[in-house]
Design a protein around this nucleic acid. Structure first.
Lengths: 343, 343
DNA sequence: ACAGGGACTTAAAGCGCTTTAAAAGATCGC
DNA sequence: GCGATCTTTTAAAGCGCTTTAAGTCCCTGT
């Protein structure tokens, strides 16, 4: 009993209620609610009185109560991995764009003992009107089941069998741009370091193969995964080759960094002897001393499109599946240059 | 009108209500509520019936409504910068520990157009019972004002003038450990690269000075900030010196990475010629090819203590300020070694 | 003077759940 | 058998805000 009193301090959440503001302004709670949300109706005089009273009491509406009372919740749930820097960028933009569209955002992150399913449940429990899933691992059937409960937007990877909206970069276009950049510089022996299994890695690999074929060049794919270690291993293999390629494209930045590291340790100059291109244009690529040419996925645009997809379903009445494919662009930095003279 | 109908799809949030479960189980909503929360009271038979009904309807409670109805909210607000990897680590643990203590967590992140004050307002609007602020920039008076409204725990930096709980690493102990490690290896000329203004940087600098004094060595502080660029600049200055120090301790990992980069480019071997120590033991430090000896702040412990501080105020009746100082430990990796032979 | 409108205002009914106080049963000693 | 004592169950009162339907008031026009 008396739990609150036991907290011992003054502020037992004596925050003013809507009713307090109403009393002080001498109007009904309905008027206060209308005024504070800028809804039409109240006269200028009422507005003024209410605003003054609210200011006096430094009133702030209880979001939980508002959410519950509103018929529409205007809540967007975002599933993310807080440890993923790319997600961080996306969240930031989602937050902004959602605010612009009049939605609030609830974040739910993966943790060690909180898998995707649990994190999603939290979002559902908040009765989010739509979910934005950043690079979810869920299978297509699982996504489909989720989508039956609430509109979903998957960001960052293709989804085939589920009725969810998708916002993703055109992976092959990105690789294409990288290859053209290298080809324009004069490269022709361009090796690809793979990102392992996983939908994203697969599209990048496919894009590389296709673009090489189109350019009339021979594709060479080295196994790898999306970690620095994988890059180091691949880099060592490359160094051990009889004739080095003149350029390497990696399936993501971390991989590229690993490759570069192996090169530097083996005394192979980048880009003097071999050019390296990464993928993601992560903050890693931008580090002064890494300075990696990379493919930028435009996180802000992805975030904006994701929010808009959700909103157009909720407010725009769209019911058909929407897939937004964004064109990535190459950011040229110091890790690429003209190929070394033949020989 | 008919906003919901206009969304066009089947699921107009026809999710089952508590009342639906009650009806199906043939009991009152009160009983259902009790059963679902595992509260004492209902008989075994009632429990069974309710559970079955809930399962049949795959009922999930509306968190917003629960939150509103509960007298206690059992909600912890966390202020973070989603782009900060260290915060990511902390959040993960906060999430876990809060769950264990029976609290839910609301995340509020800084974004470009959403400063600390705004992010905090969101948290207040959710009527969080306590706030956990990860490395807040707010001034002491601002924190004090906030603390008057709701119990606050500041993580990661000292706070002097405000009635908030603090959980932070003993910065000087960390530097101390690093110096002892170096001194044990035989180093004596150990330069410190500073982290600029800011409370955290200041304590680390102070710790370095004190530890050097105690060891009877001469302190040397080079200006810097917490970025790679700052590290590169400092590294260049060091390289340009007449006699290189045999070891460098940097105010954080990024700085250390910049220093190492400048060294490598100038042909100075690490740790062959100069040893380097970072601070934070971030994922950066752990990268295979960076492999930086660094000071670990034990994020999990900080997070746990922060949650416990909040909970002990809310549930334990503590009213006096609590400051938890954690002892960081050194993680020795490949960037430190015996000093080069004199000369 | 009075029906017919605007322009505001507000009483009251929720939103979906928790919680309390009281009712209803069950148990038991004498 | 009957009041006392427990154990279960539940009606009903919120939580703090939104929203709708029903008023008020005050003009207009006739």
């Amino acid at each position: 009993m008396c739990v609150k009193a036991c907290t011992g301090s003054e502020s037992v959440d004596q925050r003013p209620r809507l009713a307090d503001v109403a009393a002080r302004a001498g109007v009904s709670t309905a008027s206060v609610s209308l005024v504070l949300r800028g809804a039409p109706g109240p006269s200028a005089e009422t507005r003024e009185r209410v605003l003054a009273a609210a200011a006096d009491l430094s009133y702030r509406a209880d979001r939980t109560a508002s959410l519950l009372a509103r018929r529409r919740r205007h809540l967007l749930g975002v599933l993310l991995d807080v440890r993923n820097p790319f997600h961080a960028e996306l969240v930031e933009e989602v937050q902004i764009e959602a605010g612009r569209a009049g939605y609030e955002v609830v974040l739910s992150t993966l943790t060690r003992d909180r898998d995707e399913a649990r994190a999603l449940e939290t979002l559902l429990d908040f009765r989010c009107e739509a979910l934005i899933l950043l690079g979810p691992d869920a299978s297509d059937p699982a996504l489909d089941e989720l989508a039956a409960q609430v509109p979903c937007v998957v960001v960052g990877r293709p989804v085939a069998g589920a009725d969810v909206d998708v916002v993703r970069p055109a992976e092959d276009v990105g690789v294409d741009a990288a290859l053209h950049h290298l080809i324009d510089l004069g490269h022709s022996r361009i090796t690809f370091v793979d990102g392992g299994r996983g939908a994203v890695a697969a599209t990048r690999r496919r894009g590389y193969r296709r673009a090489m074929r189109r350019a009339g060049l021979v594709a060479e794919v080295l196994p790898g995964d999306h970690t620095e270690e994988g890059g180091v291993r691949a880099g060592r293999r490359i160094v051990a080759e009889h004739v080095l390629p003149t350029a390497v494209v990696a399936s993501n930045d971390r991989l590229a960094v690993g490759v570069m590291d192996a090169f530097v340790r083996a005394g192979v100059d980048v880009p003097g002897q071999v050019s390296v291109v990464g993928y993601d244009d992560s903050t890693l690529a931008r580090l002064a001393h890494i300075d990696l040419t990379s493919i930028n996925q435009d996180a802000p645009a992805q975030a904006r499109n994701a929010v808009q997809a959700a909103v157009s379903r909720l407010d725009g009445g769209r019911t058909r599946r929407l897939e937004t494919v964004l064109v990535p662009h190459l950011v040229v930095r110091g890790s690429t240059g003209k190929p070394r003279p033949a020989g």
